[in-house]
Amino acid sequence: MPHTHPTHHYQLPHFEGDILQITDLHFSYPDGHAALHGIQLCLAQGEKVALVGPNGAGKSTLMLHLNGILGDSGAVTVAGLPLNPKTLPQIRAAVGLVFQNPDDQLFSPTVFEDVAFGPLHMGLPEAEIHIRVDAALESVRMSAYRERLSHHLSVGEKKRIAIATVLAMNPRLLVLDEPSAGLDPRARRTLIHLLRDLPITMLVSTHDLALAKELFPRMIIMDEGRIVADGPTLELLQDQGLLEAHGLEKP
C-alpha cells in the first residue's frame, strides 16, 4: 500500500540509534503498590514489538512512563533525549500513546477536532494542522470521516481514529494499549492490516497472542513488574513452560 507522509519543516530532528532506552526503571504508586521493578529495555528504529503478560503485570504502567505521564526517575531515554520536565513536550511529540478505551482517547465532539488536538497543542500553524489531519486520516483509511461526530462511530472506527489522533503528531514511536480488545473479527482484521502497513516503530501491549505472532517479530513477556522474557516471538511461543508460568496460552 502506498503510504505518504507530508514532507515539511515540522519534523523532529533526524536521529539514528535506539528509539527507546529504558535502564533500571522502578515505580511505585502513591498508595505503596510497587508496579515496576528494574525494567531494562531497548527498541531499535523500525522494530515492531509485542508486550504481553497477565493483567496487573505492569504493562500499562510501563506505557504511561514512555511519555512521562508517570514517573520522573530519568530512566527513560527517547531518541537520545533523556526524559525530564524540560524535554517533556518534545518527548510527548515523539511518542504517540494510544489508550485502550477509545472513548477515553477521543474526547472531542468531532473527529477533526480530535485528530487536530495533538498538532494544535504542539503549536503548529493552521495550514500544517490541516495537512497533518488529512494525512493521519488517510493512513488509517478514514478520510471520509473527517467531519463526523465521534459518538456516531463504531468501536472499530473509534480505534482507528484513536490511532490517527497520535499519527497526526508524526511520532517516532507508536505505543498501543490492547488495540484488538473488544473488536469483532472483521474490525480486528482491518486493524492488523493497518498496523502492518504503518512504517513506524511500535510497542504494542496485547493479550492476543495470535496477533503478536502475525505482526510482531519480537516479543516481551512481563509479569509482576518485571520483564521475564524478551526474544523472537516465534521462539518464545514454542516455550510451553514459559507461557504457562505466566498465564499465557499458545495461540
Binding site: L64, N67, I69, P89, R92, A93, V95, G96, L97, F99, N101, D104, Q105, F107, F117, G118, H121, M122, T165, V166, M169
Partner: peptide, 12 residues
C-alpha cells in the same frame, strides 16, 4: 484517564 490522554498529546 482522559486527562492522561490529553497530556499524551501535548496538552499543557
Amino acid at each position: 484517564r482522559i486527562y492522561n490522554a490529553m497530556l499524551a498529546r501535548g496538552y499543557q
